[in-house]
Each structure stands twice: as structure tokens, then as C-alpha cells.
């Protein structure tokens, strides 16, 4: 029997298993256990959640391998970890450690201001952020097996997550009504590979799984993104920067499953304790916005 590892189908396949689920940022093995017990479908292992990266300043890099290994040992669900945009050596290290997914993330300080990692070179799958269809398809062209809309990480303000999801999904809707002869000009216009533009039109969706991220803090935020049409959600600072992380994590998992059921959404939103404090995106100076990193 012939078997093939690391095909695109196998890489994108894991993302398909994550759908309808919540991927949670965790900074310790204890938090990873709390996330798993709350029903997270995967965890993102990192040293500081985005809200702390914002507050701390300085250069944000890949986490300590020891921390990532502790988290991998603590849970049975998939473990993801972040590398800086363009930092293919950090990605080589994560591949060696055997993490299940690499997030080439704008939340860390970019290592390359022109190029992302050639993700086809790796056996492990990658997820990348996007703000619009062109950016999403450039990342898929480089080999990303999963996409997440960026939002504005570490803010607790969902407005950018909504903007980016509406942009991507709206562009796909317009693409579907576009006549064939306009696709090349459109691909040129949004700076995306022509074949992927064509494929997206045929599928009526991105060729890979698409989660929402960046600023989600409540069960209602998660359900909002699901109703807009994403496949699942990432929650970063929103859980472990809140008053009762275990309870909030569980509530967000339930809201992501029952995103169309207001009765359950009301029930799980009750008595959750303090949400993360949050910071309105419009109050943040443009130079400090994370979502604009990525090319």
C-alpha cells in the first residue's frame, strides 16, 4: 500500500477537522488544559497573548520550544504555534518540534518586509492572516492550508474582524457573479494568482478553511462571525484576560456550535464575569495597528 504524507490535501484536511470550533491562545500547560476541558478544538501555544504583546512593546518572536513542548505534552488536541512573517527558520524549528499547525502571524514582529514563507517547502501545514481576498489568495498561493481573517489582535474590539470577514466574503460573492472574461483583470487588480481566483469563483468560497480572528471577546462575538459565514474562530486575549477564563471559554465554544440559536446564546452569555478590558481600535495610532503587517 502506497501512502503519501504532507500532501496539500492532508495539510488542508486538518483544518477541515477544526471547523465549527474555537482555537484558543494559551501561554502555559495549565491554560492549555483549561482550554481542552472547555471544548477547544485546538490551542495556540505562545509566550504572551496579543494584549500583552501590545502592552509590552519590543520585538515579539517565536515562543521558547520548551514552552511549546510542555503544552504539546499537556493536551491531546492539536497544538499550533506562531512564527514571524517570513521567518522560515522559526518554522523549521516548529516543524522539528512536531507542532500540528504553524501560524505565520502578523501578531509577531515581521522578519521580512517583502516576502512570506514558501509554505510549500514544509511538511507541516500553515495558517495565515488576511484582510481581503487578494491577500488570502496570495497566502494560499504560497502554500497556506488554512486562512484566518486578521481582525485587530489584542484589542477585544470585534470591529476589524467584522470588516475583514465582510470584505473577504463580500468579494467572493461579487466574484461569483463576474463573467469569465473579467477574471484576469480582477486577479490583476487584487494581486492574486489567476488560477486561485478562478477556483474560488467555482467553489463559491476560499479553496481552504477560513476562520475569524482578532478582537473576539464574547460568545456573541463568536456567533456573529459564524453567522457572517466563517468556518470557526480564534480567540486570543479574550479568554485568559477575562475574569473567569474557564467559564468564558466554555461559553464561547457553545456559542460557536449554536451560533444560530438565540436561546442558547442568551443562556451561555449569562454571568460570565468581567470580559477583557479591551481597547477601541479607533483609539489606536495607525503605526500600532497589527493587521497592516503582511504583504
Amino acid at each position: 500500500m502506497e501512502t503519501q504524507v504532507a500532501t496539500f490535501e492532508v495539510k488542508a484536511g486538518l483544518a477541515q477537522m477544526l471547523k465549527g470550533g474555537v482555537i484558543m491562545d494559551v501561554v502555559t500547560a495549565e491554560q492549555a488544559k483549561i482550554a481542552e476541558n472547555a471544548g477547544a478544538c485546538a490551542v495556540m501555544a505562545l509566550e504572551r497573548v496579543p494584549a500583552d504583546i501590545r502592552a509590552h512593546g519590543g520585538v515579539a518572536r517565536m515562543s521558547d520550544p520548551g514552552l511549546i513542548e510542555d503544552i504539546m505534552a499537556a493536551v491531546s488536541i492539536p497544538v499550533m504555534a506562531k512564527v514571524r512573517i517570513g521567518h522560515f527558520v522559526e518554522a523549521q524549528i516548529l516543524e522539528y518540534l512536531g507542532v500540528d499547525y504553524v501560524d505565520e502571524s502578523e501578531v509577531l514582529t515581521p522578519a521580512d518586509e517583502a516576502h512570506h514563507i514558501n509554505k510549500h517547502d514544509f511538511k507541516i501545514p500553515f495558517v495565515c492572516g488576511c484582510r481581503n481576498l487578494g491577500e488570502a489568495l496570495r497566502r494560499v498561493g504560497e502554500g497556506a492550508a488554512m486562512i484566518r481573517t486578521k481582525g485587530e489582535a489584542g484589542t477585544g474590539d470585534v470591529v476589524e474582524a467584522v470588516r475583514h470577514a465582510r470584505t473577504v466574503l463580500g468579494e467572493i460573492r461579487r466574484l461569483q457573479t463576474m463573467p469569465e472574461e473579467e477574471l484576469m483583470a480582477y486577479a490583476k487588480d487584487i494581486q492574486a494568482p489567476y488560477d486561485l481566483v478562478k477556483q474560488t469563483k467555482e467553489l463559491g468560497r476560499l479553496p481552504v478553511v477560513n476562520f475569524a480572528a482578532g478582537g473576539l471577546a464574547t460568545p456573541a462575538d463568536a456567533a456573529l462571525m459564524m453567522q457572517l459565514g466563517v468556518d470557526g474562530v480564534f480567540v486570543g486575549s479574550g479568554i485568559f484576560k477575562s475574569g473567569d477564563p474557564a467559564k468564558r471559554a466554555e461559553a464561547i465554544v457553545k456559542a460557536t456550535t449554536h451560533y444560530n440559536n438565540p436561546e442558547i446564546l442568551a443562556e451561555v452569555s449569562r454571568n460570565l464575569g468581567e470580559p477583557m478590558v479591551g481597547r477601541q481600535v479607533t483609539d489606536i495610532p495607525e503605526a500600532e495597528l497589527i493587521a497592516q503587517r503582511g504583504w
Partner: peptide, 16 residues
């Protein structure tokens, strides 16, 4: 046995 083949790097396609 869960994850019997290992982590994601060991995921594979086969003809059965």
C-alpha cells in the same frame, strides 16, 4: 487508540 499514527506531520493519504 487516539492519534495512533502520531501528530499532523504523520497524517497521510492512502488507497484502501
Amino acid at each position: 487508540e487516539r492519534n495512533a499514527f502520531g501528530r499532523q506531520v504523520q497524517s497521510f493519504a492512502a488507497s484502501l
